[in-house]
């Protein structure tokens, strides 16, 4: 059997693809980043102690096989969150750079996406452990990069400063070899930001989603859609 296929992808295959996609981006080695003195410090004039290692999550249960499906939930309801206030600020700044406010919808930072990313990397399921290391290491790297290049935390950069860093890491095939790991982090962070944002009411509206409302009939595509697809002249 199979189930609904949002976005044209069955859940079953989507998970498979997600894992494949994750495997194609370079593994972000926390040790490699921490070992590079040019990246580990903040500003050159202010040497920092070596960053502590990213601890794996303690083993704990998830929401189980029989949670109450009729209730609504938010991040933190089932397992504790991870972000420190600093990590949260960095994550929010990056969310806002990836999905800023425009005339259609607010920014990802304004609709709780950093909390979703925190929930995601704090989840006690196997795939999330991999994402956790990548995200936490990447947030540390991007903050260190901001301090190295602009002598201030990433969250305090101007938009153009932030974009200067992101431009270097926004696409794995374009990244320099020394930025490959950071580009892998950025790809994952962008995916999670989009996942968090486009599932919110504001994000769904932005995409023009109009379902989930009872209809008297299924009318099929309107003429404008048929024309767009070249099915009618």
């Amino acid at each position: 059997m199979n189930t609904t296929k949002p976005g044209g992808i069955s859940r079953r295959d989507a998970v498979k693809w997600m894992l494949t996609a994750a495997a194609t981006v370079p593994w972000l080695q926390p040790s490699a980043l921490a070992a590079d003195p040019s990246r580990a410090g903040t500003s050159p004039a202010e040497p920092q102690p070596a960053a502590p290692p990213i601890e794996p999550l303690p083993s704990r249960d998830g929401y189980g096989t029989d949670p109450d499906l009729t209730k609504t939930y938010g991040p933190g309801d089932f397992w504790p969150l991870t972000f420190t206030p600093e990590q949260r600020r960095t994550a929010a700044a990056l969310c806002a750079l990836i999905i800023p406010a425009d005339e259609h919808s607010p920014s990802a930072a304004e609709v709780g996406v950093p909390d979703f990313i925190d929930e995601w990397i704090s989840a006690p399921y196997p795939e999330h452990g991999y994402n956790r290391v990548t995200i936490l290491t990447g947030l540390r790297w991007i903050d260190a990069e901001a301090r190295r290049r602009f002598s201030r935390p990433f969250a305090d950069l101007s938009e153009s400063q932030g974009r200067a860093i992101c431009d270097d890491i926004c696409w794995v095939p374009k990244a320099t070899e020394q930025n490959l790991e950071a580009a892998g982090f950025f790809a994952m962070f962008r995916n999670l930001t989009a996942a968090g944002f486009y599932t919110t009411p504001e994000g769904m509206k932005d995409l023009g989603y109009v379902g989930n409302t009872p209809q008297a009939s299924f009318d099929g595509p309107p003429e404008a859609a048929l024309r767009k697809a070249g099915l009618i002249a």
């Binding site: 949002p6 976005g7 696409w171 794995v172 962008r190 599932t199 379902g211």
Partner: peptide
């Protein structure tokens, strides 16, 4: 166009 989920804008790069 189903209700947006995790994968709706995933790996668009």
């Amino acid at each position: 166009k189903y209700m947006p989920n995790q994968y709706t804008a995933w790996a668009l790069e």
